[in-house]
């Protein structure tokens, strides 16, 4: 990396060695002590956040607040190791598919080529963006540098593919609505009526339908009939029917989150990753 000397890489190597030593030690430890070690560090990790929150902070900060960047950094380091693990697993799987010519091996070629191209041009874009990667060939094409190739792959490829996949949802919504919205029961009828009102009330053609009902009377006072404007009915459904339901679900979810977090933090949970089967 530009601007980083031998000391930087030395620290990096030292960090790697320490990390692998910890992992090896944890693997070698007996199952029972491993569980204690994991429970201890899990508790320690959670304890920092709990103490930082509950310790009085009259000026907005307490003695633990300053360590937040350090804790964030630790999280980022663990995450970085995991990314390497994920990439390794991904490449290994597709190389195996390719070597055994399993069904769909063509997709593995596409993945591996894309992976290598994005990695190479991504790194070149960072360190030598002006390096020519494709030379000019006669009148066929102009030369292209690493930055241009990266932009081509990122903006022209990745970004557009992401947008295209997101847009597929519109098609799926239409076909799912067509298939699922059948008046099979009173509940289904109510659900569909509400859905249709909200849909109509949120677009121009729908609001135009009841635009004739003026919000104000000729004397300037509120027109009570304006409540029947489609967008007002839709708004009523969203605020008075949807909101309490959402709030109820939100209470349940938040309590579920609190309970699960407590179980994990205090190692009350049992499961595959807690050394005892469910």
């Amino acid at each position: 990396m530009p601007g980083h000397g031998a000391a930087y890489f030395g620290k990096l190597a030292f960090g790697l060695v320490v990390m692998f030593a910890i992992l090896a030690g944890l693997q070698a430890a007996p199952r029972r002590s491993r569980k204690i070690i994991i429970a201890f560090f899990t508790f320690l990790g959670g304890l920092y956040f709990a103490l930082e929150f509950f310790y009085p902070a009259p000026s907005g900060e307490n003695f633990l607040t300053g360590y937040q960047p350090l804790v964030a950094g630790l999280g980022a380091v663990i995450g970085s190791f995991a990314i390497g693990l994920g990439v390794f697993s991904l490449v290994q799987l597709h190389l195996r598919t390719l070597s055994r010519l399993r069904p769909g091996w063509g997709y593995s070629i596409v993945l591996l080529v894309s992976f290598v191209a994005m990695t190479v041009f991504g790194l070149m874009n960072e360190y030598s963006p002006n390096a020519t990667v494709i030379p000019t060939v006669g009148g066929l094409w102009q030369s292209q540098n690493a930055h241009g190739m990266f932009r081509f792959l990122f903006s022209g490829g990745l970004s557009n593919l992401g947008s295209a996949t997101f847009s597929i949802i519109a098609f799926y919504i239409a076909s799912a609505a067509y298939r699922a919205f059948r008046l099979r029961s009173i509940e289904a009828t109510l659900l569909m009526a509400a859905a249709l009102i909200v849909m109509v009330g949120s677009v121009s053609f729908g609001t135009a339908l009841t635009a004739g009902i003026h919000p104000k009377l000729t004397d300037g006072s509120e027109n009570p009939w304006a409540n029947l404007r489609i967008e007002n009915i839709a708004q009523w459904l969203l605020m008075e029917v949807n909101t309490p339901a959402q709030r109820g679900i939100l209470f349940g979810l938040t309590l579920g989150l609190l309970a699960t977090s407590l179980r994990y933090w205090l190692s009350l949970e049992r499961g595959a990753y807690f050394d005892k089967e469910l």
Partner: peptide
């Protein structure tokens, strides 16, 4: 499975006293 049933699911499946 809707709302906090999601969190209740593992308790229901495992019948684990903790959950």
């Amino acid at each position: 499975v809707i709302g906090d049933e999601f969190y209740a699911a593992s308790a229901y499946l495992s019948r684990d006293p903790t959950l």
